[in-house]
Design a protein around this nucleic acid. Structure first.
Length: 375
RNA sequence: GCGUCAUUGGUGAAGUGGUUAACACGCUAGUUUGUGGCACUAGUAUGCAAGAGUUCGAUUCUCUUAUGGCGCC
């Protein structure tokens, strides 16, 4: 089977939704956060550690796995689950984001047929099409595949966006046509920047194609303001069906997860918890802290006193600071575990709050604490 | 004891008689939102062993002292 989403409850005062997704690799509750494992690994962590964080779904990336080791190798090794030894659900991104980050000359490199890239590894010229992206994802055998879209920068003009979302719709159609993995869901992606009519058009047309779930894309990039991000969600959600999952791509910060949930988003993914971890930073209830800071040299507390993650149960800030300062990989590993657990715990608490129809109170309490120090 | 060469920030060091003493590391802080990049950005010696002199001006020249390396008795 593909996936099955059931909407269990909509919060009384907001659009926040409690739901459940059934997959071939188990059930997951929504709202939820998915850690990113671009190259078939959540950087530094074993699948057991990822699962211990409470993670339901894990991400992997079509573009990266296409280059190395290649989708045929992954297929030969039994598909992504077996290959990376992860028995939970896996979602693959389509490579659309790499169009955004790697195609240097948007006008020249992005054609109707597909997108020209330069490999970030050796600079060789690559060409990715909707058909190719879906074919790779079929072979990777993830549980959820994403349509190949263009993720335009926030600075894109109305005119550019208009053409872009029309092309993304045609790409979605082409991808859907060749998608042939019976065990894999395929999601459509809504684009349109912060323009109400473009989001509406993109959403309505994407929904017409009847995907297994829908994403809101093109947010949280290129210095986009938070207001624009929230607008993008607000303008897209009303046109998405109630009985399908809604995925806000690439988000993110605790604040944005709360704002997304309030607006009716079910799932999130973001590199932030693992990336900032490798750079020494940790999420806490009071905001982010930087464990590189000298003030933690003799700090014998856990990163967070009441956190139940493996890191906080066993290690002090002083020790983690030491690991970071001498460049030991364990520092980043422990912080990754903490940060992933932090976001997943946030979604766990959000689910309870939705169930009890007190999401706004929960959000307010969280933000009051979180804003009190650092953002 | 004599001669000789050195002495620049936390470290390794570049450099010049004249505006803000290069660079690297380290250190300090910040950034990071569908991960190309444990990356990026910024700050970090009011002073060039100490003192005196020459000079309009000295970290740069001269002398004395201190410390250290090397050589000779």
């Amino acid at each position: 089977m593909k996936i099955e989403y059931s909407l269990l409850h909509t919060e009384k005062n907001t659009k926040a939704r409690l739901g459940k997704i059934k997959t071939n690799y188990g059930c997951v509750d929504t709202p939820m956060f998915m850690p990113v494992g671009t190259r078939a690994t959540v950087k530094g962590l074993t699948p057991e550690e990822v699962k211990e964080c409470g993670s339901g779904v894990c991400l992997a990336n079509t573009y990266h796995l296409w280059l190395r080791p290649g989708e045929d190798i992954v297929a030969y090794c039994g598909g992504l689950h077996k290959f990376m030894n992860y028995d939970g659900p896996i979602l693959t991104d389509s490579g659309g984001f790499q169009v955004f980050s790697l195609a240097k000359n948007k006008k020249k490199d992005i054609t109707e047929e597909g997108v020209h890239f330069k490999s970030h590894i050796d600079g060789q010229n690559l060409f990715l099409t909707p058909e190719k992206s879906i074919d790779i994802q079929n072979k990777l055998d993830s549980d959820i595949a994403m349509s190949f879209d263009e993720c335009p920068p926030a600075s894109a003009s109305y005119e550019y966006l208009k053409n872009s979302i029309e092309r993304t719709l045609r790409w979605a159609e082409r991808g859907k046509k060749v998608h042939n993995n019976k065990n894999q869901a395929l999601f459509g992606i809504v684009q349109g920047g912060a323009y109400e009519d473009l989001r509406k058009f993109s959403a309505i047309e994407t929904v017409k194609m009847d995907f297994d779930g829908y994403s809101i894309g093109g947010v949280a990039n290129d210095g986009e303001s938070k207001e624009d991000m929230y607008k993008a969600i607000d303008y897209s959600i009303p046109y998405l069906p109630e009985n399908k999952v809604r995925y806000l791509m690439g988000v993110g910060e605790p604040v944005d997860i709360l704002e997304g949930v309030e607006r009716g988003v079910d799932i999130f993914d973001c590199v932030l918890p693992t990336r900032i971890a490798r750079h020494g930073q940790a999420f806490t209830r009071h905001g982010k802290i930087n464990l590189n800071n000298a003030k933690f040299k003799k700090d014998l507390d856990a990163i967070e006193k009441n956190c139940d993650c493996y890191c906080c149960r066993n290690y002090t800030r002083a020790y983690i600071r030491h690991l970071l300062s001498v460049g030991e990989v364990l520092g980043g590993r422990l912080l990754s575990i903490h940060n992933i657990r932090f976001l997943i715990r946030l979604t766990e608490e959000i689910r309870i709050a939705i169930k009890e129809d007190r999401f706004l109170d929960y959000k307010k309490a969280f933000l009051e604490k979180y804003d009190s120090k650092n953002k």
